[in-house]
Simulated assay, not measured.
Amino acid sequence: MIRPSETTTAMLPVLVNVSIAQCIPLPALSIGTHALALAHWAHLGFRGTGCIETFLREWEVNAPSLKQICADPATTDAIVKLGVPLSNFRVHSPVAPRQVYCTIGNYRDQLLQAALDADDGPDGPGAAARREAALNSIEARRRNGAPYICIKGAACVSGPHDPLAISPNLETLDWEVEIGVVIGKSAAHVRVEDAFDCIAGYCIVNDITLRDRVFRRDAPAMGTDWLQSKSRPGWLPAGPWMVPAWNVGDATQLRLWLRLNGSLMQDGLVSDMIFSIGEQIACLSNSTRLEPGDLICTGTPAGIGSHHGRYLRPGDVVEAGIEGLGSQRVMCIAQSNA
């Protein structure tokens, strides 16, 4: 498994989507310091070396050759000798999904934290009862329930270092660091035990959410509104790269973290999920057909802004990372309501 620190780069080649000057983004392999366009290996029969969306849609064709060159020590040498310093590129999202799915309330510690924050707070006289009720509810859902998954508009996907524009009327804009699962082949009615065969790779995502729009004030009986609360452009920074699944190993051991202006806000393990990545894929594939390039945002650990009583505002710097998948840095900027 790739195991760089939070600030260092990966030791094995990873898939990036980069551009230089005003050119169209193109998929490349990177070792963190340099990147070399996949077109360098076009003789291997890759499809879509000029477009990350096409490359991922053709994952089943491309994956065997990609796995071969990623394991070849000569590939690292080629990237260093023939590639361009990654700092010279603009790094875009490593995925361009047609569908984005988000799993809601999927970390035990986040649900428990929300329960303790309610009513008289974590130190109030009712905290113990709320804690017990939350734990019982989580275990009952684990035994008898299913993942709660919504759709997030694909137009919200942005790069790992793109600025996040915040207009004055967005007062409850929140962060959610998550492990993003990129689908590698069409999947329908997949069994849990076969789900990992459908994964192309993993990346970091930050599922930006407007808390006061999750529930509609004008239609409270209608339930949640994920379009208004999650799907504006820029509300899903992704990347900086995608690590192929064969280089990740046991994803449940990965650590997720998020810092706001240098202060640690979220810190959790994938193993704290109520429903595993495989269970999420199986659940989705029984309701819809998953296609290559689709992205699943798999839930977030404790420490979201509503817990801290602090939401995003212009001038903030949000850094999010996952062990082995790198880190992203997003600057929040002011935008007029117009």
Results as ranks from 00 to 15, higher is better:
residue 117 D to A: 12
residue 196 F to S: 11
residue 242 M to F: 02
residue 301 P to E: 02
residue 60 E to C: 12
residue 190 V to E: 10
residue 225 D to A: 09
residue 17 N to G: 08
residue 74 A to C: 13
residue 328 Q to D: 01
residue 251 A to H: 10
residue 66 L to D: 01
residue 308 H to F: 13
residue 256 L to P: 04
residue 182 V to H: 07
residue 10 A to F: 07
residue 66 L to H: 05
residue 267 D to M: 07
residue 293 G to T: 05
residue 316 D to L: 03
residue 146 A to P: 00
residue 99 Q to H: 14
residue 205 V to W: 08
residue 134 A to H: 02
residue 170 L to T: 11
residue 239 G to N: 04
residue 157 V to G: 03
residue 73 P to C: 11
residue 182 V to F: 08
residue 273 M to V: 04
residue 323 E to K: 12
residue 330 V to R: 00
residue 166 I to N: 10
residue 317 V to L: 10
residue 335 Q to P: 06
residue 219 A to Q: 13
residue 184 G to L: 08
residue 21 A to L: 14
residue 241 W to E: 04
residue 265 M to F: 09
residue 193 E to P: 04
residue 151 I to G: 11
residue 45 G to P: 01
residue 169 N to A: 09
residue 276 S to G: 08
residue 92 H to L: 10
residue 56 L to T: 04
residue 102 C to S: 13
residue 316 D to H: 03
residue 61 V to E: 14
residue 302 A to I: 00
residue 291 E to N: 13
residue 165 A to C: 14
residue 319 E to D: 07
residue 302 A to S: 08
residue 160 P to S: 04
residue 123 D to H: 12
residue 36 L to F: 00
residue 284 L to S: 05
residue 233 P to Y: 03
residue 208 I to P: 05
residue 160 P to A: 06
residue 18 V to N: 07
residue 143 R to T: 12
residue 90 R to M: 05
residue 133 A to V: 07
residue 228 Q to G: 14
residue 321 G to I: 06
residue 44 L to I: 03
residue 83 G to I: 00
residue 217 R to I: 15
residue 120 D to L: 02
residue 134 A to Y: 02
residue 293 G to A: 06
residue 174 D to W: 01
residue 160 P to D: 05
residue 30 S to K: 01
residue 59 W to V: 06
residue 223 G to D: 06
residue 125 P to Y: 00
residue 36 L to R: 00
residue 13 P to Q: 08
residue 324 G to T: 08
residue 81 K to I: 12
residue 281 I to F: 08
residue 197 D to F: 09
residue 227 L to N: 08
residue 177 V to R: 10
residue 26 L to R: 15
residue 35 A to I: 03
residue 295 L to T: 03
residue 248 V to H: 06
residue 46 F to H: 04
residue 31 I to K: 09
residue 138 I to K: 02
residue 158 S to P: 10
residue 205 V to H: 06
residue 4 P to H: 11
residue 62 N to K: 06
residue 123 D to Y: 12
residue 193 E to Y: 01
residue 206 N to F: 00
residue 33 T to E: 15
residue 26 L to Q: 15
residue 151 I to D: 14
residue 96 A to V: 14
residue 259 R to T: 07
residue 72 D to C: 05
residue 213 R to E: 15
residue 12 L to D: 13
residue 97 P to D: 07
residue 77 D to I: 11
residue 258 L to M: 07
residue 163 P to W: 01
residue 77 D to L: 13
residue 128 A to F: 03
residue 180 G to Y: 11
residue 229 S to C: 11
residue 200 A to N: 06
residue 77 D to K: 15
residue 47 R to E: 15
residue 286 N to R: 15
residue 317 V to S: 04
residue 86 L to N: 02
residue 219 A to W: 07
residue 157 V to L: 06
residue 308 H to K: 00
residue 182 V to T: 07
residue 275 F to I: 00
residue 63 A to S: 13
residue 321 G to C: 04
residue 266 Q to I: 03
residue 29 L to G: 02
residue 80 V to F: 01
